[in-house]
């Protein structure tokens, strides 16, 4: 009896799935119902002239504007600049946040010393800090990068710290019995058990990086999607504003999905409730 159960489990563990299964396709379609439905209603309402085209252009108009910008408006260039800024800011801020989280997570002393100050800085809003950065570093890349980095520092810091501190004491006892050295304690026990929280931190940090990017680019810039939106707003080119906003939404979602994908690969060992 036992052996058949064990065999079944064995089969389950070694089964490989195609790249996109039927279940996944259904999941994607489930997620698409809301936005697609909204677009259809929106387009329909526009064509029936229920909407003021100066305030809410139809999706088809936004699409045409998108194609135009792609071909003649240097959209790809703006996209590249924005993505580069967001990523660099995220890497700098998130990286430092991860390091600080590890440091403070491991040492009680550094927690008492650093954490109160960090929590104070965390509460400072972007818009309050931005003028200071501009005064210090001008309108160049440095102030933009710092603003984005400042945002993405905190989610990774807080979650890394939390992940390290929520390690299971019982597993620590096992490592003690098995005489793990410091290095193995960190790499085999503490980091893996903090990994779910670290991934959450990465996702939140990336999201905040995109938010910081908009603030940075709208404040004073001649390139990037944020500039595109701000510029179009000044000229009352409402379709362009929408293109910019949608690009932000899509980019944000894509980067989040990418991290989620990596997370799933790294955390295959987890067993969680996935919703009923």
């Amino acid at each position: 009896m036992v052996s058949t159960i064990e065999k079944n489990i064995q089969v389950a563990t070694h089964k490989r799935q195609p790249l996109i299964s039927r279940v996944q396709l259904r999941k994607i379609m489930l997620g698409a119902i809301l936005p697609v439905g909204l677009l259809v209603i929106w387009e329909f309402a526009g064509r029936q002239s229920y909407l003021n085209p100066l305030l809410l252009p139809m999706p088809s108009e936004i699409y045409h504007e998108f194609i135009y910008l792609l071909q003649h408006g240097g959209l790809l260039g703006h996209l590249q600049v924005s993505t580069g800024r967001a990523l660099t800011g995220f890497l700098v801020g998130g990286g430092l946040g991860l390091l600080a989280g590890i440091l403070v997570g491991f040492s009680y002393k550094s927690e008492k010393m650093l954490d109160p100050s960090i929590q104070m800085l965390r509460m400072l809003p972007h818009l309050a800090i931005a003028p200071l950065f501009i005064l210090w570093f001008g309108f160049g890349e440095t102030s933009k990068l710092l603003l984005i980095a400042k945002g993405s520092f905190f989610p990774l810091y807080v979650n890394t710290f939390l992940g390290i501190r929520s390690m299971d004491r019982k597993l620590f006892e096992v490592a003690n019995v098995l005489q793990f050295n410091k290095w193995n304690l960190v790499t085999k026990l503490i980091i893996p058990s903090a990994l779910p929280n670290i991934f959450l931190g990465i996702r939140l940090s990336l999201g905040v990086a995109w938010l910081g990017l908009v603030v940075a680019e709208m404040m004073g810039s001649t390139t990037g999607i944020g500039f595109l939106i701000n510029d179009a707003r000044a000229m009352a080119m409402i379709s362009t504003v929408f293109v910019g906003i949608i690009i932000f939404a899509v980019l944000g979602k894509l980067s989040d999905s990418l991290v989620l994908f990596i997370e799933r690969k790294c955390l295959r060992w987890q067993q969680n409730f996935r919703g009923g």
Partner: peptide
């Protein structure tokens, strides 16, 4: 604690992120 003394807890206390063989190998 030392390696001369093996200890089995009431719960298996395996590292959930390691496969069976890696759990046994440990460090």
């Amino acid at each position: 604690p030392s390696l001369e003394k093996g200890f089995i807890f009431q719960e298996p206390r395996l590292f959930p992120w390691l496969t069976v063989e890696k759990n046994i190998a440990g460090d």
